[in-house]
Computed example of a mutant assay.
Amino acid sequence: MSLLPALGLNFGLLVIIMVALWLISVRIRDVSFIDAFWAYGMAIMASASFLQADNPETLAYTIWVLTAAWGIRLGTHLFLRWRKEGVDPRYKKIMGRAMEKQGMSFAKAALLKAWALQIPLLFLVCLPAQLGILLAGANGLSLVSIVGAIIALVGIGFETIGDMQLKAFKANPANKGKVLDSGLWKFTRHPNYFGDFCAWWGIWLAAAPLGWPVWLAVIGPLFLSFTLMKWSGAPLLEKSLKQNRPDYADYIKRTSGFFPMPPKKHASN
């Protein structure tokens, strides 16, 4: 199938799924599970692309497996966390502001402030994977693609380990109100976000040898990087943690904000 119709089908599928999930969120009056679908949606877009690909070979399989593994792992982690913890305070605040200050109904706020916004952003961030799978054809793995796949695997592994460490830390009642500063969290305040960063830059690099459409799709990992480091990722999370964790300010002084680095030994001096 040609490129534009395939991408159009992917986008249409994404819209249909998002509308269905919006209706569910209205029924349960909670949009928090949107974070889980952000990851699942990437896996769905990659899988839809793979099903439309002509004679997929090693490169297409590699990009599909990397994207699906990242999306299913993270989506399941976030979904189970939502089932356990309930409404996310961030979304509760966003929805409350829209309803109280802008006079929106819950349904309208959920559509405009959550689901509708996610459609183009998810599609854009996932574009390198979609293009890579659709354009790969019978291509095998070049050296650049191998390097990209390794970076993506490192990111998936880094994020997985970081999430496991945080889950174990939270499971111990003695750690309530404390800051996790061991394991990967000793070297970066956001191992999970750094893992996302590596995964999607790796996927883009794996597809990059296919030419200019993928080169233009660099906007996907660029936007994701901006989101994680400067917009709705680390900044929003840290704002909340500084208010609720007394030790977090000192943790910031000694621990890298994003890229893993050895901790500073004399932050208090």
Rank of each mutant, 00 (worst) to 15 (best):
S2M: 12
S2E: 11
L4T: 13
L7D: 01
G8L: 11
L9R: 13
I17A: 10
A20D: 13
L23A: 14
I28E: 10
D30N: 07
D35M: 12
D35P: 09
F37S: 14
W38S: 01
Y40E: 02
G41Q: 01
M42W: 14
I44T: 09
I44F: 09
A48E: 11
L51G: 15
A53T: 09
N55M: 10
P56C: 06
E57H: 14
A60N: 05
A60P: 08
W64F: 15
L66T: 05
L66Q: 03
G71S: 13
G71H: 04
I72T: 11
G75S: 01
T76K: 05
L80N: 12
R81H: 10
R81V: 09
R81Y: 08
R81Q: 08
R81W: 07
K84M: 11
G86D: 12
G86I: 12
V87R: 11
D88F: 03
K92Y: 10
M95Q: 04
R97F: 14
A98I: 10
M99P: 06
K101Y: 10
G103A: 00
S105L: 01
F106V: 09
A107S: 13
A110E: 04
L112R: 15
K113C: 10
A114C: 13
W115S: 05
A116T: 07
A116E: 07
L117Y: 14
I119R: 00
P120A: 02
L127E: 03
A129V: 09
L131D: 04
G132S: 02
I133V: 08
G140S: 05
L141T: 03
S142A: 04
V144A: 11
I146R: 07
G148R: 00
V154N: 05
V154T: 09
I156K: 02
F158S: 04
E159R: 03
E159Q: 09
T160M: 07
I161M: 08
I161H: 05
D163W: 03
M164L: 15
M164K: 13
Q165T: 00
Q165V: 04
L166E: 07
K167C: 06
F169R: 00
K170H: 08
A171V: 14
A171G: 13
N172D: 13
N175F: 05
N175A: 02
K176D: 12
K178T: 15
K178P: 08
D181F: 03
D181W: 04
S182F: 11
F187M: 04
R189Y: 00
N192D: 14
D196V: 07
A199Y: 08
W201E: 06
I203F: 00
W204Y: 03
L205S: 01
A208E: 04
G211Y: 00
W215M: 14
L216R: 05
A217S: 05
A217V: 06
V218S: 15
L222V: 12
L222E: 02
L224W: 00
T227A: 15
M229C: 11
M229A: 04
A234W: 03
P235I: 00
L236G: 06
L241Y: 00
K242I: 15
K242Q: 12
N244G: 12
P246L: 07
P246N: 03
D247G: 08
Y248S: 10
D250K: 08
D250L: 15
I252R: 07
R254K: 12
S256C: 04
G257H: 02
P260S: 00
P262R: 07
P263R: 02
K264G: 12
N269W: 15
